[in-house]
Design a binder for these strands. Structure first.
Lengths: 102, 102
DNA sequence: CCATTAATTCGAGACCTCTAGAAATATGGT
DNA sequence: ACCATATTTCTAGAGGTCTCGAATTAATGG
């Protein structure tokens, strides 16, 4: 994961609603959850929710699969792991020297 | 780290300039770097940089120590680790069941 | 067909962010 | 006191985000 991609993903997770949606989807696991289920759980108006889901899909934090009328949202676990690795590898480089200083 | 704090930190890291600043500071380690050094390295206008640094300080991604004329910026490694732990613990909960499905 | 359900797109208002030059502040040196 | 250095605060414009009701699209069932 490069700098730009990481920044984009971080931006999307940096919104309370989207973070809540993402956490709910992660709890839902690889089966994901439908837009309606997310809405029922989190109480976000449909159009607002759709907007947030579209943004998260664009940066591949989630993917959306359409099954007839319902849209299933599934977290892209690999990309979350890549993001975490980016934060660990790129951002914790200088921490080794002083880990005992806490 | 709670939901709100995590979202706030993620928002701040989700800006290219701020992410670049943060990565530079992490590379600088526990000694940190002065505002001037960051500016020289990244070529961001002083007022813009000051704005970004203030935001990062507010959410405690970094802290600022003033030594006479120069302001030293130091990453808050612990809070970065808390953020990474949040992402791992709160967001990867559902991933265990399907790690072999990739 | 028509109604219902599921979700997206449109449109508009309110608010926030980003940017950066100019002015201000603070400190140290001479 | 004066000047250079280091950084922040002020200000304003441009553009982006968030929100959500209304309208729209799409699919299913009767």
């Amino acid at each position: 994961m490069d700098h730009e991609q990481a920044a984009d993903s971080l931006t999307e997770l940096g919104n309370t609603h989207r973070l809540a949606v993402f956490r709910f989807l992660v709890r839902a696991g690889h089966e994901g959850a439908s837009v309606g289920e997310i809405q029922k759980e989190l109480g976000i108006p449909a159009s607002t929710l759709s907007h947030h889901l579209a943004r998260m899909t664009k940066v591949r934090l989630i993917r959306q699969e359409k099954h007839s009328r319902t849209t299933i949202c599934i977290p892209e676990f690999q990309n979350l792991e890549r993001l975490i690795d980016f934060l660990k590898e790129e951002c914790c480089a200088g921490d080794a020297e002083g880990k005992d200083a806490a």
